[in-house]
Nucleic acid binder design. Structure first.
Length: 264
DNA sequence: ATTGCTTCCTGAGCGC
DNA sequence: TGCGCTCAGGAAGCAA
């Protein structure tokens, strides 16, 4: 499930593959995957830059902008020339030099929006702070947690509060911070909030260094897997390093893994 | 304003 | 071998 480290890995790899290339066409192989929201449909143009905001991939071109979200099972796979499509290929981005990006997506939740540059800010306006920005401080998080009765797990997953965290990394962050996912956000001490901020940056940095976590579908642009799945401490685990059995509970429809002994 | 549930989708894994 | 069931979950939409 691509979260910030996986999307960041894809963005870095896309930069080295597609910047400077001229888009010839975008082929939609399934209704709903590609959404062209421009008023005037014309040449998209050369790729100027590739960026990330939360879990969104932003591909800036000369004339427009492509906003890609991988959701659960989306992948962007580079090929120097057209070959056999995967069974789950939903779209293709073709370049004038003959190379292309396949957009594969088993569960079809992901998509590619083609926007006018002026629409981009609006499309991203609801997203909260970036974990690596200066705005993500204990004081910011404390304000967002204040008086909240919702579990800290749910608040950290909310993209309007912090952009980029998903189920796997929130489980890992709370485990490293020693905080139970069941705790109400409003009941956390400043010291605990400081730990969350520190461990968020730490876990995400380590995961980016390992090119993300491949549990099932996530792949890099060259179709390789990430390696951080080998360093997970709690997500999908049976036993904690302390010897205690890892507990698994459902919180708003998602699995939370935690160690009842290490996380209070 | 906050919260939590439902929905979208399809493959994998499991019991029988 | 194959059927039916459950599970995985990001985020929008909606109801309370």
């Amino acid at each position: 499930m691509p979260e910030l480290p996986e999307v960041e890995t894809v963005v870095r790899e896309l930069r080295s593959q597609v910047i400077g290339k001229d888009i010839s066409q975008i082929v939609s192989l399934r209704d709903g995957t590609v959404n062209d929201r421009r008023e005037n449909v014309s040449e998209i143009g050369v790729v100027i830059s590739v960026r990330r905001r939360g879990k969104y991939i932003i591909i800036d071109t000369m004339n427009d902008v492509l906003l890609v979200h991988l959701r659960m099972t989306g992948k962007l796979i580079y090929a120097a020339e057209p070959g056999e499509r995967s069974r789950f290929c939903r779209a293709e981005i073709h370049f004038k030099d003959g190379s292309l990006l396949y957009f594969d997506d088993v569960r079809t939740f992901g998509g590619i929006d083609i926007l006018q540059k002026s629409e981009l800010d609006g499309a991203l306006s609801k997203l909260g702070v970036e974990p690596f920005s200066d705005e993500f401080t204990p004081s910011y998080l404390q304000k967002r947690m204040r008086n909240r009765i919702a579990p800290v797990k749910s608040i950290l997953l909310d993209q309007r509060e912090i952009a980029g965290l998903g189920n796997i990394y929130v489980c890992e962050i709370l485990h490293r911070a020693g905080i139970s996912p069941k705790r109400s956000g409003g009941k956390l001490s400043l010291e605990e909030i400081e730990k969350i901020v520190k461990e968020t940056r730490q876990v995400l940095s380590e995961a980016i260094d390992k090119n993300g976590t491949t549990i099932s579908d996530y792949r890099r642009v060259d179709n390789k897997q990430g390696e951080f799945q080998n360093f997970l401490r709690v997500y999908g685990k049976k036993r904690c390093h302390c010897g205690e059995e890892i507990a698994r509970i459902k919180q708003s429809g998602r699995s939370s893994y935690y160690c009842p002994s290490c996380q209070k």
